[in-house]
Design a protein around this nucleic acid. Structure first.
Lengths: 126, 126
DNA sequence: ACTTGCCTTGACGTCGGCGGTAAGGCCTAG
DNA sequence: CTAGGCCTTACCGCCGACGTCAAGGCAAGT
């Protein structure tokens, strides 16, 4: 499989796949002419990468998951290194959730106050 | 008040205040020698800006709040434009909260699954 | 031979809110 | 006169996951 086909099947771009390779997440063989040659398994790897990125992981966080998949595991998150990253990320997400919830409450409060104030003014005008 | 004093009183840097000015949030007068001269009210404006930034607003979102404050209102979020931005931002935050909650649940699930799998293997080994 | 359509490397652009530094002007105290 | 402590404009750097050229090589159909 050449890079274009993998890109299309994975729902992404060739540039993106080269980027992953540049950062050590994928290592295709090379044809005589220098073309990258991927085997079928890489499709799963790329899907895993994309899912983790979408979940907010950084490239460096993802490396252990890929290694775990390559080691023959059914999923990338069962190895100790992956679990450590999972724990850390979960903590980060929960902290961010807390802050974001506080922000939401504050916004709701300001909005309610603004509306109330407007109605007060309307009553005065009448 | 010169830029250094305002920066210190607002708990930020001169560079930051110039950045705000560059983006139309503050417009100090100029002394004969070109120095920026701020009056007392700008301290509140800068505090408002910082609070909104900390809440996740972008520079462009903040402009109406500043205008609202300058128009003589007690707070920057009572004017129609500000309220519109508040509504939009609240919607954004809530959507992001939803996605982040989904991510958290997924992470918790994967973590639980990984731990369960490990324990299963330990039982087998024994 | 020519066109089309893959592929390659390399390098710069993006977004946002500044930080940092250079090169220089202004003002005051010693 | 000079040192220092403000101020000015101007421009590069940062982070991360790519997008977007540019310039060229390779393979295959007509």
């Amino acid at each position: 499989m050449l890079i274009g086909e993998l890109a299309e099947r994975a729902g992404t771009s060739a540039r993106t796949l080269r980027y992953y390779e540049e950062h050590g997440l994928v290592e295709p063989r090379r044809d005589r002419n220098g073309y990258r040659r991927y085997d079928e398994g890489e499709l799963r790897v790329v899907h895993e990468i994309r899912a983790l990125l979408a979940a907010g992981f950084g490239i460096d966080d993802i490396r252990p998951f890929v290694a775990c998949l390559r080691a023959g595991n059914a999923t990338g998150h069962v190895c100790p290194d992956s679990v450590a990253v999972l724990r850390r990320k979960l903590a980060e997400v929960e902290e961010y959730l807390g802050r974001l919830t506080a922000v939401r409450d504050q916004l709701q409060g300001q909005l309610a106050q603004a509306i109330e104030e407007r109605e007060t003014r309307c009553l005065k005008i009448r």
